[in-house]
Design a binder for these strands. Structure first.
Lengths: 195, 195
DNA sequence: GATTTAACAGAACGATCATTCTGAATCAAG
DNA sequence: CTTGATTCAGAATGATCGTTCTGTTAAATC
C-alpha cells in the first residue's frame, strides 16, 4: 500500500506543519510526524531528507496557505488602514476559534525557538518581516493626505513590531477581546497620526 | 571540596539563567548546566529537584535582576513617558551590547517555548504581562492632561503588545537602530495621542 | 502473469538526555 | 585524630530521539 492519506508532498507538509505549529520543533518527534501524516519514515526521508528540511518546507507552506491569504489584502494597490484592521481581525479570529491561548504564528514561534540554532530559518524569518513591512508601508501610504514616505516607513516598522507582539501575547492570553481592543486602540493612534 | 564557584543558590541560579536565556530550555542540557555552574548533578537535584524546577527558579531570578531594575522607573509614582523611553532604551542597549540578533527577553522566550507545555510557566508569563500593563498604565496616567483611566488602560495594553513585539524582533534583527527608530516613532504617536 | 519499481511497517542503531546511584573526598564537631 | 555529614565526580540507568536498514507488500510496466 502506498501513501494512504497524504497523496502529495503538499498534503504531507500541511499535516506536518500543523504539528510544528502547535507543538514546536523540539516537541514534534519523528514518531508523531509519521503517525499524523500517515507517511512512513522512509517516505519522509526520501521526500525531504530529514526533520529540519521538512520543517523548512512547512515554513514555506505556512506562508502560502496562512500568511498570504490573510495579508494579501494589505499588499494590494488600493489597500488602506481598513485592510490592516482586516488582517489583524482575521488572525485574532483564527486564534479565538482554536481556543486561546493559541498556537500563535508559526513564523514568530520559529523566530524564537528555531532561528537561533538554524541560519536558514533565521533568514526566512527576516524575509517574512521585510514582507510585512513592505505591505504595511503600502497600506499606510494610501491613508491620509499623502504623508512623506519616510513617515509611513517608520510607522510600518512599528506595525511589524506590533504584529509580532500580538502573536506573542496570543500564546498566553485567554481573552480575544483584549487583543481586539489593543488592535483598535493601536489603529486609532495610527489614524490620528496620519490625518 | 564543596561548591567551588557557585557558593549560594542565587549564584547557581544566575549561571543557569544565562544558559536558559541564551539557548532555551531544550537546548540547555543538564551536562552544560553542571559545567557552567560548577555544581554537581547531585547538588542541583538536592537544591531544586530537577531541571524544570531550576528553570522556574531562573524565571524568578530573571525578574529580580533584569526586569525589575529596568522597569522600576516606569512603576515609580512620578513616572511619565520618558520613563517608558528609558525602559526601552535600557533593553535595546543590553541587546546591542551582546550583539544582535540577541537572546531577547527570557520571559518572552519562555512564553513561546516553555509555557505551552508547562502551566506554571504560563501563569508566570501572564503575571509578568499584567505587571507590565500596570506599570505602563501608571506612567501613561502621569502624562498629558489627566486622561481618563480607560484610555490609559487601553494604551497600556498596546504598550505591552509593543514590548513583546520588540523582544521578538530583537531575536532576528541585526540593526539596533531600527529598533530604536521603531520605539521613537511609537512613543511619538503615543505622545500625540495623549496631548 | 512476470518483473521491476516504489513505498510500506517496523526493527535496529547510535547518540543524547534527565535522573539516579556509587564511592571518594572534604569539612565541621567532639 | 576520629566520626559523621555533606558534597563531589563520574558511571550506570532508562527513556527518547533522529536516522538508517531490512524484509515485505502493493502498484506499474511490459
Amino acid at each position: 500500500m502506498p501513501r494512504t492519506t497524504a497523496h502529495t508532498n503538499d498534503e504531507l507538509t500541511e499535516r506536518a506543519l500543523l504539528q510544528f505549529w502547535h507543538h514546536g520543533f523540539h516537541a514534534t518527534s519523528m514518531d508523531t510526524l509519521v503517525k499524523t501524516t500517515n507517511v512512513s519514515r522512509h517516505g519522509i526521508y526520501t521526500a525531504f531528507g530529514g526533520k529540519k528540511q521538512l520543517f523548512h518546507a512547512c515554513f514555506e507552506r505556512y506562508q502560502d496557505i496562512v500568511v498570504t491569504p490573510a495579508f494579501a489584502c494589505v499588499e494590494e494597490p488600493g489597500a488602506d488602514l481598513s485592510a490592516i484592521a482586516r488582517y489583524f481581525e482575521t488572525q485574532i479570529a483564527r486564534g479565538a476559534e482554536s481556543g486561546l491561548p493559541g498556537p500563535g504564528c508559526f513564523v514568530a514561534n520559529a523566530s524564537t525557538e528555531t532561528a537561533p540554532h538554524d541560519a536558514i530559518t533565521q533568514t526566512k524569518v527576516a524575509q517574512h518581516n521585510a514582507r510585512l513591512r513592505n505591505g504595511f508601508q503600502n497600506a499606510l501610504s494610501n491613508t491620509g493626505m499623502a504623508p512623506p514616505s519616510d513617515r509611513t516607513d517608520a510607522l510600518a516598522q512599528v506595525c511589524v513590531v506590533f504584529t509580532n507582539g500580538l502573536w506573542s501575547m496570543s500564546r498566553t492570553t485567554t481573552d480575544a477581546d483584549a487583543l481586539r481592543a489593543a488592535v483598535k486602540t493601536f489603529l486609532d493612534t495610527l489614524k490620528a497620526d496620519l490625518t
